[in-house]
Simulated assay, not measured.
Amino acid sequence: MSGLNVRIDEKRFDDVSVVRDLAFSAQNGEFLALVGPSGAGKSTLLNMISGLDTDFVGSVCWDDQPLYAAGQSPAHLGMMFQEPRLMPWLSTLDNVSLVLSDPHAERQRAIALLQEVGLGDVLEAWPSQLSGGMQRRVSLARAFVVAPRLLLMDEPFVSLDMPTGNRLRDLLLALWQRDRPLVLFVTHDLREALALADRVLFLSPSPSRVMLDYTVPLERPRRLEGTDIARLQEELFRQHPDLLSGVLATQEAVAGGVKE
């Protein structure tokens, strides 16, 4: 099929198998969320897909061709991590322009994206002058400025308070619906996965594999704190209590650690 095809026969760290017999496919423009208990290898999986980690048995293909050459990330790949990872000596604009192949020629695209995420008045500000939520918006603009076909997101909104997180989720969906990259979004929060994704892939404890590929039945727009999401989460826990017990434990463990 066109799009992304992932098959990880095995990934090991020393003598420990952390991923085994994991496989899934996704079409261009889909939004997939990856959830699983702590230590399930979600971040490890993103590293293998991105090409940051090539030490595994298996394959990662895009449109039936290898996604990357050994040791190289593919073109038109965007990434967003748990922390903004901004360069403290660069301005807001320069942090976004940093990933462009020709920062001077494409400068206007970076400015337009920063304006779109509400940061047009802080283009020359240093990261230390920005709030945590504003830094995440810079990181979001940087992920989209390369016009990604594939966007990998590793718990990008973790530990944010609800209003800040909701604003960022709305911005993400607006950018995704406009540009339609294929998104792989790692989260510990099942409600967030159900609010954002077309499909949710539930990973088993390590060595991880896909235990459930679930298509979200709700129309957009959806609100993370809405009653529809709450009912759907309760239904999933009721139908798959053993599978999702680790997800619930991880979700509850991090629920108290919010920040701006």
Rank of each mutant, 00 (worst) to 15 (best):
R142Q: 08
P37I: 07
P127I: 12
G3R: 00
I229P: 03
K11R: 05
F56K: 10
D55C: 12
P148C: 07
Q177M: 08
R20E: 14
V186W: 00
A230D: 11
D213G: 12
A147L: 11
A23N: 09
V186H: 05
R142V: 06
G257T: 09
M211E: 15
V117K: 07
G118I: 11
Q27A: 15
H76K: 11
V35P: 02
L130C: 03
R231V: 00
A69F: 10
A147H: 15
H104W: 13
R222Y: 13
D14R: 14
Q239M: 08
A110C: 02
S91Y: 13
E83I: 07
A230G: 07
K11Q: 13
P221R: 08
L151P: 11
P156Y: 01
V183I: 04
P156D: 00
F56D: 08
M153C: 06
L243D: 04
G36A: 07
F31K: 10
L248D: 07
R209V: 09
L194R: 05
M48V: 13
L67N: 07
L32G: 04
W62P: 00
L46S: 09
Q65V: 05
V200F: 04
F237Q: 13
L67K: 03
V258W: 14
W176M: 05
P241G: 06
L46N: 04
G246Y: 02
A195L: 03
M211S: 15
E235D: 10
E235M: 00
P84K: 08
D94Y: 00
G58A: 02
A253T: 10
C61D: 10
S206F: 02
R169I: 13
G78I: 03
L244E: 14
R191D: 12
P207Y: 04
R109S: 09
A253C: 03
A143H: 06
D161C: 01
D14W: 05
D154Q: 03
D21P: 11
L45S: 09
G246A: 12
D21A: 13
L172G: 11
G226V: 04
M1D: 15
A70D: 15
W62K: 00
V16E: 12
Q251V: 13
R107D: 00
S139V: 01
L113V: 11
Q65K: 08
M87H: 07
H76E: 14
P37E: 10
N5C: 15
S17R: 11
I229F: 06
S38T: 12
S38P: 14
K11D: 01
N28D: 14
K42G: 10
L201V: 03
L194M: 11
R109G: 02
E234W: 01
L77W: 13
F24V: 05
N47K: 06
L150N: 11
E116G: 10
E83V: 10
T227M: 10
A112F: 09
